[in-house]
Amino acid sequence: MALGATFAGVIRRELRLALRQGSDSIMVVTFFVLTVVLFPFGIGPEVNILERVSAGILWVTALLASMLSLDRLFQTDYDDGSLELLTLTPTAMEIVVVAKIAAHWLTTGLPLIVAAPLLAVLLHMDGAGFVTLLLAMLLGTPSLSLIGSIGAALVLGARRGGVLLSLLILPLYIPVLIFGVGAVDAAIHGFSPDAHLMVLGALLLVALPLCPWAASAAVRQAIE
C-alpha cells in the first residue's frame, strides 16, 4: 500500500513540477528538432542520403536529447535539500527513484517519441520504418532514462557535472543505439525487426531492476 502511495505521490509531484516549470519538456523536444534539422545542412539535402541515415540520426539525436535532460532528474532536489528528505522516506528509496525515472521518461522520453515521426518525414525515412521507429523508441527510451539515472546520481556534487555526465553515460547508451537503429533499418529493408525489438525489450527488462538500485546507491553516497 505504502509503496503504491509513495510511487504515485512522487510521480504526481514530479509531473506537477515539470508542468509548472513548463519549459523543460519543450526544451528537450526543441533540441531534438533543431539538432536533426542541422543534419541536412551538414550532409546535404539529397533524398537518398538522408533516407539512408535517417534512423541513425534520429536515434543519436534522441540519445543526446535524453542525456541533456538528465541533469534535472536529481540535481535540483539535491541543491534544495529535497533529496536528503526523499532518502528518509519510510518506503524503500528504490521506489522513489523508480518514480522519478518514470516521471522523467513521461516528460522527456514520451515527447521525443511524439516528435520522432515528424522528423522522420523531414529526413525522408521510408514509410515502412515508421511503426518500427515508434515501437523501438517506446522500448528504448525508458532504458535511456534508467541508465542515465545512474550517471545523474553519480555526478551530484561533482565539478563540471554536465560534461562528466556525457562521458559516463554515452558509452553505456551504445547497445540501445545499436538495436534501436537496427530495428528501424531492418524494417526499412523489408526484414523482420522482431529480433532487434526483442533485444531492446530484454535490455529494458535488465535495466528496470538494476538501474534504480544502482542509482539509489549513488544517491545515498552523494548525500552522505
Binding site: V155, G157, A158, A217, A222
Partner: peptide, 18 residues
C-alpha cells in the same frame, strides 16, 4: 574523470566504485 571530479577524494572513490 569521476574519481577526480570531487573535492573530497572519498566521495570520488565511492562514486567511481558504483
Amino acid at each position: 574523470a569521476l574519481v577526480d571530479a570531487f573535492d573530497d577524494p572519498t566521495r570520488g572513490a565511492r562514486a567511481a566504485a558504483i
